[in-house]
Design a binder for these strands. Structure first.
Lengths: 238, 238
DNA sequence: ATTACTATTTCCCGAGTAA
DNA sequence: TTTACTCGGGAAATAGTAA
């Protein structure tokens, strides 16, 4: 909370100590230590906060107590509700790119019954046997692709059949061009780079949308904000 | 949000415009107008925020775009979660005072079947026919009494019987001395002042706790924070 | 011990202006 | 048009210290 102003921090400090509902004993020195400011500054800020109507201070004999006023509560609530509105709304993550023709590997895998069954069950539709390959054009899309790969929560299991190992994948549902329900498939150990996504859908998207190589398309994923923040901060915290 | 620092406000401004998940076109002048600061200050603060790692700015040809970094998101989340912890925890509202003997009016009313039935149904216990009167000793308790009267959500209806009108009341459940489950009864048009509360309980509290006139007691109400803030701000907003 | 005044230093804002 | 530099004035922080 490095960017918060001292006054805001003081209100938060007091509120933490229950000064929303009762008068709380608080010395200027204590406050100063907690906020890493000088005792003098703490004193001045308390005076100002009282003048501005955010807190009330009273003496009970020698003991000095501080309580937030309704205005003080209001200040905290305003900030809280503003942030809540921003941080808890679902987030649209958008990937833009151009259609290109791949090696038809996707089509091959989609015909393997073990995969097909899983896709059908977990995606809620029977995928057309072929993937639409999209090469992402800008840095934001590529960043978002990396993010989405972490957020993708539909897991397709791999398997072995004695001869070889078939890898797994992760999917996430999305909209193509705001119209078509699709799933982005993140294949484990794909031979494509991070600038490519593969998309599956119930129908042949090329036919349905008249797409040709080089056409621009965009894919949107609506993520509950909680997921996104967990994903976005997972690495940051570590 | 008068107490927030400019930098915090900038992050919020950007986040509102979706700069958490994509790069957003933002000119320094626009930002300056929104935050009521000078264009120069806006420029300087953006530079600093970038140096400090809260945002990233890029040029796409002539267009300049800004996006929050994970650190920027983290800053907002930190503040949000801190405030959430404070503002959404249940709040204990405490009233302290001394027992005194009233006019036994409470006892009279509690014997009227129309009232008695309501108390029994709505409080979840059959009240001992008599109220414990408590005179509040300090300003905080009196303030909290006024607040609680507004927050009291158990409504006892009044009635007429041809001869006269019997007034209504509002109650709220509480703990006396952290032990006894009681209800504070706020009688409409009481003849007591705002420094008095009346309490009912399943048993005779004076006997059970060995209370005499002048003994100190305290009554605690645990309020879901939402209720409290609605009540606390109802007047303030108006 | 605790608060808060005064003096000094540091930092921040915004005007002017260049690129 | 937009960004961002320099610089002067003023606000804010701390030190010293009184009450």
């Amino acid at each position: 909370m490095a960017l918060l102003g001292h006054k805001e921090k003081i209100l938060i400090f007091l509120a933490k100590r229950n000064a929303l509902s009762e008068s709380v004993e608080t010395s200027t020195l204590e406050l100063a230590k907690a906020l890493k400011i000088s005792q003098q500054t703490a004193s001045r800020l308390l005076i100002q906060l009282e003048e501005e109507g955010y807190i009330v201070r009273r003496r009970y004999g020698k003991v000095r107590r501080v309580k937030l006023t309704e205005r003080g509560l209001r200040e905290l609530l305003d900030v809280y509700l503003t942030l809540k509105g921003i941080l808890e709304r679902p987030i649209e993550v958008k990937l833009e790119g151009r259609v290109f023709t791949g090696l038809s590997e996707g089509a091959y895998y989609l015909q393997i019954p073990y995969y097909l069954r899983q896709f059908e069950e977990k995606l809620g539709f029977k995928p057309y046997p072929g993937t639409l390959n999209i090469r992402l054009m800008d840095r934001d899309s590529i960043m978002n692709r990396i993010l989405l790969e972490k957020a993708a929560d539909i897991r397709i299991e791999g398997f072995k059949d004695g001869k070889r190992t078939y890898g797994g994948a992760k999917c996430i549902l999305a909209k193509l061009n705001d119209r078509e329900t699709v799933a982005i498939v993140f294949i484990e150990r794909t031979h494509y780079g991070e600038d490519v996504i593969e998309v599956v859908a119930p129908t042949c998207l090329r036919e349905r949308l008249g797409l040709r190589d080089g056409d621009r398309v965009y894919v949107c994923v609506k993520l509950p904000s909680k997921n996104l923040y967990q994903v976005a901060l997972r690495d940051y915290r570590a």
